[in-house]
């Protein structure tokens, strides 16, 4: 059994862009696998936690009940939760719907939108589909979050340096270029 620290990742109401940025660390990913084992993550397609993890990296906020469930599961299994990117830290683009009542959003998407073809005339409500929350919640409104890495997406170098600092128990020092987004 490996004694390497374990890392889990997930994408909730995000676009997977933050995960793409994580992969942008290029060949350093080989170094990363030397440092850590990946547990539940879309990178290795492990669906369920098999062990306790040191770090849980969350992309995206919570838009539906499944997102909440997954996020709470991460909180239960991970010592340190990182909210990665603007959607996880602030809700991001999906949270633009927070200004519009949910009913109007769903009607626009499934009933009234100019390109909608929906002869049944119903908003999808199959039990297989997770229910949508009244608004998009950033992660820290649902669980306690330990670290925030803003950016849309945060650059690979930012993610890399944050992980390395965390794994080596060193203070995180990010040069200005890595955290400016204007």
């Amino acid at each position: 059994m490996s004694t390497k620290p374990k890392v889990a990742t997930t994408s909730l109401a995000g676009c997977f862009g933050c995960h793409m940025s994580l992969l942008d660390i290029d060949d350093r990913i080989l170094k990363l696998i030397e440092l850590v084992d990946f547990n539940k993550s879309p990178i290795n397609d492990i669906k369920k936690f098999t062990d306790r993890c040191l770090v849980g990296i969350i992309e995206g906020g919570c838009s539906n009940e499944e997102n909440v469930h997954v996020l709470q599961d991460f909180r239960k299994h991970c010592d340190v939760i990182i909210a990665l990117g603007d959607c996880a830290t602030m809700g991001g683009l999906p949270a633009m719907r927070n200004h519009v009542p949910l009913k109007e959003c769903l009607e626009e998407a499934y009933l009234k939108g100019p390109t909608v073809y929906n002869p049944g005339g119903k908003v999808p409500g199959d039990a297989e589909l997770p229910l949508i929350l009244d608004k998009v919640y950033p992660c820290q409104e649902v669980v306690k979050v330990d670290l925030f890495l803003p950016g849309c997406p945060p650059p690979a170098d930012t993610i890399w340096q944050a992980l390395v600092a965390l794994l080596n128990n060193k203070p995180l020092e990010l040069p200005y270029e890595l955290i400016k987004y204007d």
């Binding site: 949910l102 009913k103 409500g125 039990a127 009244d134 409104e141």
Partner: peptide, 26 residues
């Protein structure tokens, strides 16, 4: 580690009304 201020029942109320079914989870 959970935020006590987050109320999932309240957050799902609108959705349950719109699709006319209860959450199967919560």
């Amino acid at each position: 580690g959970l935020q006590p201020s987050f109320d999932i029942v309240k957050a799902l109320r609108d959705s349950e009304t719109i699709v006319k079914r209860k959450s199967v989870h919560v």
